[in-house]
């Protein structure tokens, strides 16, 4: 780099190299994060959250026991319950297998809830289903790219 270049040309020269792009973006982020660091202590946790967690250690569905009887509904604190008329039904649902597990064991709460039914499925499929649509599409597209590149080599 020549000495008589103006500061603007120097910046331009550094910025115009594609290899510096990542560093540039990261630097930009760091600057914002450092400036934001001072505001962090003022951010308080909002206590009245949607879909709150309740821990009932005695339950065999711990940590996902949200109450209710299968094929009945249970109160779920959704953002717009009026948009999902059947909200709460998935939350209480237990398949025969998970019902059996729930009756006989005490430490398999996660397995029971991961099996179809439960609060997470309620959120993922019912109230926030569009998120899951987008997300599976991302998976689809990303692997499409990877396999296209992978297969192209011959």
């Amino acid at each position: 780099m020549k000495a008589n270049q103006s500061i603007i040309s120097r910046i331009s020269a550094a910025v115009s190299r594609v290899e510096n792009l990542t560093a540039l973006y990261a630097l930009f982020f760091v600057v914002v994060a450092v400036l934001g660091l001072v505001t962090l202590p003022s951010i308080t946790y909002y206590d009245d959250q949607l879909y709150p967690k309740t821990i009932i250690p005695e339950s065999s569905l711990n940590p996902y026991d949200r109450g209710g009887v299968p094929f009945e509904t249970t109160p779920v604190k959704a953002q717009y319950p009026e948009n999902s008329p059947y909200v709460g039904y998935v939350t209480t649902y237990l398949t025969p297998l998970s019902q059996w597990l729930a009756d006989h064991t005490h430490h398999f709460g996660t397995t029971i809830v991961a099996h179809p039914g439960g609060i997470i499925d309620e959120i993922l499929y019912n109230t926030r289903g569009l998120d899951t649509v987008v997300e599976t599409s991302i998976l689809f597209v990303a692997f499409g790219i990877a396999s296209y590149l992978f297969r192209r080599d011959d």
Binding site: Q49, Y51, K53, Y64, L124, R128, E135
Partner: peptide, 18 residues
């Protein structure tokens, strides 16, 4: 919250696919 958990799952899968 439960919502956070439901947001982590997509976040994870997005990360791995990218």
């Amino acid at each position: 919250t439960d919502l956070a958990e439901a947001l982590i799952l997509p976040g994870l899968v997005v990360g791995i696919s990218e």
